[in-house]
Design a binder for these strands. Structure first.
Length: 504
RNA sequence: GCGCCCGUAGCUCAGUGGAAGAGCAGCGGACUUCUAAUCCGCGGGUCGCAGGUUCGAAUCCUGCCGGGCGCGCCA
């Protein structure tokens, strides 16, 4: 947590105790506004009993500005009870910060490249690619909000066996013949076949349009064809040897579990790892401070070899970061559907969007930890779309917009005489945003944002139900709460690429 | 066989050393109101199992069980 109002409390406790302090929100109201473990953390180092030390802290805590009283609890927690002045200050600071509230947490701004989606142009985007994009784009947005400069890139595998197989499959269809062995057979193959032109070019255009519809815009598109020409220059920088009639990269000496072949024995053409190396070198040469690769769990074996490439090329492997997300499994009609483009038995992003909408799709795909497999029951996702948490959060935003539309000339303010329980909870929730945004960014975990947004909406709906805003003695303060809450909700939604409607 | 990931309420999942949570599903309540797509209440747990570290473990370490993904000339 890192709002200024919170930081000042933490700093004061650190000075008082002479050691590290953390503030937590207790689950029970009788445990105060905030609880600190400072006595537990420091007592051991000082060689005193935790509870005794906690007593000392609790006794002098009221000397800290805005601390009304303090109690010792459990093994040595200190529960802090804050005065109304703290809430006024905290809310005032949020209003003052406006749209910037919670941002700019980066200590040093970096140039970061996020390579994501990069699906082969051999078929429409699947829900797996959608998770890649929703996750990668949310991470990119978090990085930008923290103050980093981000470039989004899509790597197009426009050459190689798969795209040739795709071309042959389409051409076979045009001639009315059976597709080749292991060829592509989906319905979309027929559609591509029915219009003239190169199937790969056309597929790529469809992917670009689909991504735009999904609100993901790329700054650059790199073709494997272009990288291929840089392989010859990159390979000499590697640690290689000849064996079995081919050239190998000694990646096992750099953390990989086995070496990787660079050249195909049969015809001397470059293999995929050679392109990986050249592409990584190409990225580093563009001067990025950090390279993020967003890959599905079925590519987790790439982590070690990509880092090995960075090391062999003379770069710090820590600057090359691979973000792995678990796969998206689909269930429809009680049957699992495997994501395989070649068999054509797969749910495409377009189908998911048609059924549950862009907002729900983006929300749902980032709202779980990236290490967690997502199981989507396609039928159920549609039926329950109105109960999707995204609507709950959007509704809170729209409700506030409604209040603000009806508001007269009263100026929103942080000053309130004696905030009620619901108002206190809401303010404490809002001041969490900076910490949530920073942690979500540093851990590359945007799902923390959606989890937090639900809590904010929860606290607001509760406040709304218990207290009228307009035409009350507390109108200025409550309007301030509304403005701040709307801003925080809008920020959270934007960070995951979901719209914040003013009306629903 | 080896590597990565997962195992928390009936279901879907948050919670990476500090007092076990949310949503959905179930049951019962609340609309002369700034939006009832909301709110209030109730029930529900050997945090996969067993050890270890620690004042303190769902969280860290070891082993095991169960599930997912992957394991050089495809990308």
């Amino acid at each position: 947590m890192a709002s200024r109002a919170l930081d000042r409390l933490t700093d004061a406790l650190v000075r008082m105790a002479g050691g590290p302090a953390e503030l937590d929100r207790p689950s029970k109201a009788e445990h105060g506004d905030y609880a600190t473990n400072v006595a537990l953390r420091v007592a051991a180092a000082k060689g005193v009993a935790p509870r005794d030390f906690a007593q000392e802290i609790a006794a002098s805590a009221p000397e800290i500005e805005h601390v009304e009283r303090a109690e010792v609890a459990g093994p040595g927690f200190v529960n802090l009870f804050l005065s109304p002045s703290w809430y006024a200050q905290a809310l005032g600071e949020i209003l003052e910060s406006g749209k910037d509230f919670g941002g700019g947490s980066a200590e040093t701004a970096e140039r970061v490249q996020v390579e994501m989606v990069s699906a082969n142009p051999t078929g429409p985007l699947t829900v797996g690619s959608a998770r890649n994009g929703a996750f990668g784009d949310a991470v990119a947005r978090l990085l930008e909000f923290a103050g980093h400069e981000v470039e989004r890139e899509y790597y197009v595998n426009d050459i190689g066996r798969q795209v040739e197989l795709f071309r042959e499959s389409v051409e076979a269809r045009r001639r009315g013949e059976e597709p080749p062995e292991d060829g592509y057979t989906g319905e979309y193959v027929s559609e591509i076949a029915s219009v003239p032109g190169d199937p790969v070019d056309r597929m790529l255009e469809e992917i670009k349009a689909e991504l735009m519809r999904f609100r993901i815009t790329f700054d650059s598109w790199v073709l494997q064809r272009e990288i291929e020409g840089e392989i010859a220059a990159a390979l000499p920088k590697l640690d290689t040897y000849e064996a079995e009639g081919t050239t190998w990269a000694r990646t096992s000496a750099h953390g990989d579990d086995k070496d990787r072949p660079l050249v195909r024995s049969s015809d001397g053409s470059f293999l995929y790892y050679a392109s990986d190396v050249a592409y990584a070198e190409n990225k580093f040469a563009r001067g990025f401070d950090r390279l993020l690769y967003v890959l599905g769990a079925d590519h987790h074996g790439y982590v070690a070899r990509l880092k090995a490439a960075a090391a062999m090329l003379g770069h710090d492997p820590a600057r090359l970061e691979v973000l792995i997300y678990q796969l998206v499994h689909l269930v429809e009609g009680g049957q699992a559907r495997q994501a395989s483009k070649r068999r054509g038995d797969v749910v495409f992003l377009s189908e998911l969007i048609d059924k549950i909408g862009i907002d729900a799709a983006r929300w749902y795909l980032v709202s779980r930890g990236h290490d967690q497999a997502i199981e989507i029951d396609v039928d159920l996702a549609r039926e329950r779309s109105e109960k999707n948490p995204v609507f709950y959060v959007q509704y809170a935003h729209a409700r506030i917009a409604g209040i603000l539309r009806n508001a007269g000339g009263v100026e929103p303010s942080g000053d309130g005489a004696a905030p009620t329980a619901e108002e206190r909870e809401l303010v404490k929730r809002l001041v969490e945003l900076p910490g949530i945004a920073r942690e979500a960014c540093e851990r590359r975990g945007p799902h923390a944002v959606t989890t937090y947004a639900i809590r904010v909406a929860d606290d607001f709906h509760r406040f709304y139900h218990h207290h009228r805003v307009l035409g009350t003695d507390e109108e200025a303060f409550r309007l301030g709460l509304c403005v701040a809450t709307k801003s925080v909700l809008a920020r959270c939604l934007d960070l995951v690429g979901v719209e914040a409607p003013d009306r629903m």
